[in-house]
Design a protein around this nucleic acid. Structure first.
Length: 504
RNA sequence: GAUCGCGUAGCUCAGUCGGUAGAGCAACCGCCUUUUAAGCGGUAGGUCCUGGGUUCGAGCCCCAGCGUGAUCACCA
């Protein structure tokens, strides 16, 4: 709070200067610095492409034509560079299409407009009209014959060359990051495209997009800590969903054949370079499909999105070939030198690796704990399917009929990240009930506060869910891979940060 | 949650051995019709994250706290 005081005090000179300028404009020039509607605006990139070399040449000739042949445009943007040179002022505007110089000659503008143009600040939003031409140095620009300020920026701007570089400031003041760092704008534009392409892909394959509850009385579908909340009028506790799975499956029961949902999940876990408490996931289910059906679908989706070999940090990831495959058990054995089904061998390895409660903990939970090390053996440059997960750690997955300890489940790994899970869905209500009950047995009090049996879901399975394949993929992580960002915070517009100021 | 790093002007950063605060950009003033991160010249701008401690003296050393980044853990 002291920090805030001092910030306000030391900023005051810069803010005061801008406020004083604002006052002068309104009082002396009679200008409304907060702007108004402008029709027929041309995006800056489009205005640039309107440039006609022949027209510019004609204007530079000994005897320029009477009629100005240069195309005209009205452009708007935020001032990101400004150079006032006496009777000539140059500025560079930026909008979401790009940058373009606006050149202002005192001879072409009304006195008040020229004065305004020569005095605008970095960060102001302006509108200029005029022919698209070029300067003596060959820079394509709009030669303004009309110039207006449409929004005064009062905040002190960041340094104009480096922009905001401090990661914290970039996340906290994303709106500044966006206009000063074009890469940021590009990343989020790309994210939008990717999500849109995913939707089109799914629709093309006959999937219907749905929206299921984000506030759920029972938070199921994944093993994660949920956020809790409360509905006052009904006086009930609710959880923010950790997965949409159990609702999407209800839709299969209801008769939808192919459904998907792209939306947020919320998990009350730690934050890291790969984890934000709210993250976007796509889940999809296909009646009469299985694990293989959705593996094939997702592989072609990801290959289509990536379209080739993409850099990721220090890696080059090849999406063009069929993704690698290895079974969970093989990877385990390759890493730890024992069969994962061999309980005593697993306990021995676990004890040697100092896994907690190696002697008493459930055998398959030990296998899961040891598997982390195995994940590191996967070639990060090769998208890889890890198949045949242990049934014991896959409570919503159908066990294999030929090997009941193994589930029809695969997980996709790329660049060392878990990208998604793929299943042949469990639709036997009795086995499902048993799995849920097993899971609830022996949980501690803390977990008991948010884990409970979703009996309505079991009722739905009793009504009958067709056999199905289903999957979920992390959209943020896909965007990270496709835009070459190794921190999830760079692909989420407003990642969760602690509020500034401490104390509270 | 653990370990390590970082926090100095609005922004980007220097700051030597502990000797009392520096630059560039931005701001302000003046000049200027061809600049393109930076036209030229001048002026001003600081709770060195916060609180303690050591010391004649702390931006610098020590302790605690806050924020943040990286790695690990939990998870996707």
């Amino acid at each position: 709070m002291n920090a805030t005081d001092s910030k306000e005090r030391s900023e005051s000179d810069l803010v005061a200067a801008r406020r004083a300028k604002l006052k002068r404009w309104t009082e002396e020039l009679g200008i409304d610095p907060w702007g108004s509607r402008v029709d027929d605006l041309t995006p800056l990139a489009d205005a640039r492409s309107m440039f006609l070399e022949s027209a510019a040449d004609a204007m530079d000739a000994e005897e320029p034509p009477n009629e100005d042949p240069r195309p005209r445009a009205t452009v708007a943007g935020r001032v990101i560079q400004h150079r006032a040179m006496g009777k000539l002022t140059f500025m560079v505007l930026r909008d979401d299409s790009g940058d373009l110089q606006v050149s202002c000659s005192k001879a072409d503008l009304e006195t008040a407009s020229f004065k305004l143009a020569s005095k605008v600040d970095y960060g102001d939003i302006v509108v200029a009209s005029g022919p698209v031409g070029r300067t003596k140095r060959g820079e394509i620009c709009v030669w303004a014959d009309q110039f207006e300020v449409h929004c005064k920026s009062l905040a002190p701007p960041p340094e104009k060359f480096h922009g905001l570089t401090d990661a914290e400031q970039r996340y906290r003041r994303r709106y500044v990051d966006m206009y000063t760092n074009p890469e940021t704008m590009e990343t989020f534009r790309r994210r939008s495209q990717i999500v849109s392409e995913i939707r089109r892909f799914m629709e093309r394959h006959g999937y219907v997009e749905v929206e299921t509850p984000m506030m759920q009385p029972v938070a199921g579908g994944a093993a994660a800590r949920p956020f809790g909340t409360h509905h006052n009028a009904l006086d009930i506790d609710l959880f923010l969903r950790i997965a949409p799975e159990l609702y999407l499956k209800r839709l299969l029961v209801g008769g939808m054949r192919k459904v998907f949902e792209v939306n947020r999940n919320f998990r009350n876990e730690g934050v890291s370079r790969q984890h934000n408490p709210e993250f976007t996931m796509m889940e999809a289910y296909q009646a009469f499909g299985d694990c293989e059906t959705v593996i094939e679908l997702a592989e072609s989706l990801i290959r289509e999105l990536a379209g080739g070999v993409l850099p990721y940090g220090d890696l080059e990831i090849d999406y063009t070939q069929a993704f690698d495959r290895i079974s969970y058990g093989d990877l385990f054995e390759r890493t730890h030198g024992c069969n994962m089904s061999d309980e005593s061998a697993v306990r021995t390895v676990a004890a040697k690796k100092h896994v907690e409660d190696a002697a008493t903990r459930n055998h398959w939970l030990l296998v899961e704990a040891l598997f982390d090390e195995a994940e590191d053996r996967i070639d990060p440059t090769r998208p890889t399917w890890v198949t045949d997960f242990p049934a014991a750690i896959s409570p919503l997955t159908r066990p294999r009929s030929d090997a009941p300890d193994i589930a029809w489940r695969a997980e996709l790994f790329i660049a060392g990240m878990e990208i998604g899970n793929f299943y042949t869905e469990l639709n036997d209500p009795d086995i499902q009930r048993a799995r849920f009950t097993e899971q609830l047995d022996g949980i501690n009090d803390e977990e008991a506060a948010f884990r409970s049996l979703d009996s309505d879901f079991l009722d739905a399975l009793c009504v009958g869910m067709p056999p199905a394949g289903g999957f979920g993929i992390g959209i943020d992580r896909i965007v990270m891979l496709l835009t070459n960002h190794t921190s999830i915070r760079d692909v989420i517009l407003f990642p969760l940060l602690r509020p500034e100021g401490g104390e509270q």
